[in-house]
Amino acid sequence: MRSFSEIETISKRASRGAGFSWGVSEEIGKSVRLLEMFGLPGILHLKNYLEKINNHNYQKITIISADNISNNIPYCPISVGVNFLDQAYNLEKIENINFSNLAYPLLAVPFLSRSSEIIGKKILLNLENFKFLFNYNQSILSNFDNSLISKTTNFLISFNQNEDSFDKKTWDSLYKISQKTFVDETESSKKTAAGAGLTDND
């Protein structure tokens, strides 16, 4: 089995070999490593994309907005991913971000995962029939079936508000059980605890 270090190195070098700058190639290396670590087929998608890159036109993106439409030429997933990562602080103010025509969308996925960690919010992605939930770059929850998607017209990103997955009642019930680890304080311990005997109005 290839180590993650080998996966990162080969992805970085191949990306540079395909014409990306060194700085962007470093990002791709880290991102493909992340995909593979989360069990997603990063190497396969990168290989397929890089093989096509010389003979096909892919649209670069500069500033990402709510609706990103490229009717004829599909967006480059690396350009989308890197710019999303760089602009995540501004983008989180937008509720939904849509890309109408995106090549090899899985390659943009790790950048969303890293963005989730940077801005401190969960991010939800709808890609065709698949959903991805990015949990602060600690995990990716997905029903993705590892299929090779070379192009999509359905790539919708939304920022989840930081909300609990449980209601107050559930929390309170659990808190009640946790109280079983506490001990009642005696009068004497109250008298000798920090601050005892002093006025707090000094």
């Binding site: 700058s21 060194w22 700085g23 470093e26 990002e27 890197v82 710019n83 760089d86 602009q87």
Partner: peptide, 17 residues
Amino acid sequence: TISRFLADNNDLRHAVR
């Protein structure tokens, strides 16, 4: 912002890092 700069200057991304 560096974010805006990088949007047009990713060839120097490694140096910015």
